[in-house]
Simulated scan of single mutants.
Amino acid sequence: MTEPAPTPKAIACADLRRAILLLEIAPGTPLDEAGLCTRYGMSRTPLREVMQQLAGEGYIAQRQNRGAQVSDMSHKTLRDFFLAAPMIYGAVLQLAATNATPQQLRDLKAAQRDFRAALAAEDVADRTLANDRFHRVTGEMADNLYLLPSFHRLLIDHARIGMTFFRAHSETRAETLSEAARQHDAMIAAIETRDPTAAATLAQAHWALSRDEIERFVMPQGLDAPLGTVPRTAAQ
């Protein structure tokens, strides 16, 4: 049997998720509902259902009487990202090692193959999407009602920041990406052997690996104030 064709709503959701993750639509950009209706051949009612779904997933924010906009990346959201990421990644990997199903392991290995292929091809968009998929599968493995919404929101900003991280122009950064791929392999092994302690340790190492690159994205060159602080001259 052939798969049924995707509905306009499904196409719109997938397109908008991808465009937001890849920064094709910038953070904070208002979304033109009339233009999206025309683009996807749907009326306002199904489009607003799409907007509600994307808002629930953390891709967009719906503002009263002002329409929807892409979720912002303000100083506060980035500061919160830095504070929450190591805790959330560690908890997700621990639960993944406890709860993963055989099919989810196959999905994770497939995402890792895609990630390595994108690294070899030096395709920034594919690297970002494959990495996002890899970590989303670990979230599916964790299967925690309270943890997943925060994890999914975290991954949106991690992917958007990753559009910078995955542009490996230097030899050092290319080696960092290779190490990230090796850590993915080690995570798969820890999950497969049901070792939550090793999985959590790997999550922390994986975060530490990418933290310096993320800070370069957040902090302009030459500005060395810790994230979340106010320079003395600005506070006076």
Rank of each mutant, 00 (worst) to 15 (best):
A12R: 03
A111N: 06
L202H: 03
D126R: 15
E171D: 15
R106T: 09
E179P: 02
G28S: 05
A5I: 10
A14D: 11
L145I: 09
L93I: 05
M187R: 06
N99S: 06
G67I: 07
Q53F: 11
A97K: 01
A85H: 06
A186K: 03
A190R: 02
A100Q: 03
E49K: 08
A85F: 05
E24D: 15
D72M: 11
V92G: 01
H135T: 07
G222W: 06
G222V: 07
R167L: 14
R18L: 07
L78A: 07
R173Q: 15
F165L: 14
G56F: 02
R232Y: 12
T201S: 13
V50R: 01
Q94K: 11
D143Q: 08
F166M: 13
R133D: 08
S150M: 12
R63F: 09
S43D: 12
D80Y: 04
D132W: 10
D212S: 14
D123N: 15
V92E: 02
D114W: 00
T38S: 13
A125D: 15
A199M: 03
A142V: 09
L95F: 04
S43H: 10
Q94D: 07
S178R: 15
Q62C: 08
P6N: 00
L145H: 08
L93Q: 01
G35K: 04
A34M: 13
S43A: 14
A84I: 06
L31C: 06
T138N: 00
F166E: 10
R116A: 12
Q64C: 07
A84G: 08
H135Q: 14
A199L: 02
Q94M: 12
I20Y: 01
F151S: 09
G228D: 05
R48G: 01
P86F: 03
A203S: 14
T201C: 08
C37S: 10
T138V: 04
P220H: 06
D195Y: 00
A198N: 04
M141Y: 01
L83C: 06
N99R: 11
E57L: 15
Q183W: 01
T38C: 09
P220K: 04
